[in-house]
Nucleic acid binder design. Structure first.
Lengths: 105, 105
DNA sequence: AGTTAATGCAACCCTGTAGTTGCAGTAACT
DNA sequence: AGTTACTGCAACTACAGGGTTGCATTAACT
């Protein structure tokens, strides 16, 4: 497991507008146009954000009639969370070890 | 719990160089100058990155003699992981509910 | 006290990207 | 078939931020 695939996910999550989109999608699948009706940005801007989110594996798209609907993928988020947890735990373990050494054990 | 404090953390994690810094710090506390010796960027660039990481609560600084040493905070990472996990789980729950409706229950 | 080695600050370049407007394409619905 | 409503593509603006160089400052160490 490399971190190379993690970075794009975080980069995607590090934007307020994209979070708004994710939260909106969290309430139900929606197209770029539909999202543009709820958020204070253009449909084209939203389309770009959706492309970034899809590239990061955080959403998937599905054609429904003439519209392209997007669905949020919670599993990817959970997967990322598990990885983060492991890394954080490891760093904390090291810190504890350092403290024990500092205390002269 | 709002997501407003989450975004800076992800923005901080969404950069390869900052990950290199975090990984390096994961092996032991270090100053900006020391890090500059190991990574292919300037000390000043690293200093900026460290400021971002500190702002996001991912590292803390401690003076040791005339140098300013940085330490990675795994706990913040774990905290973020827990939040992510919850959100991801909630979205997945909704998806499952939708599928059950689609199956006509 | 003088030297050395660290940090702090400022100005600058340049690329990436969030956002826009405008128009072309395309597939439903009547 | 014609209209409507959605997506796709392209060009452009503007600003944030990752990176650099250069210099000032400050605090250990001898």
């Amino acid at each position: 497991m490399t971190t190379s695939t993690l970075v794009p996910v975080f980069a995607a999550l590090g934007d307020e507008t994209r979070w708004s989109i994710l939260v909106a999608l969290g309430e139900g699948d929606a197209s770029a146009s539909a999202l543009a009706g709820r958020l204070p940005v253009t449909r084209q801007a939203i389309a770009k954000h959706l492309a970034v989110l899809q590239e990061a594996g955080l959403v998937e798209s599905l054609r429904v009639g003439r519209e392209l609907r997007y669905r949020v993928l919670g599993s990817q988020l959970s997967e990322t969370a598990r990885r983060l947890e492991r890394i954080g735990a490891e760093w904390d373990r090291r810190l504890v070890a350092i403290k024990r050494i500092a205390e002269g054990l």
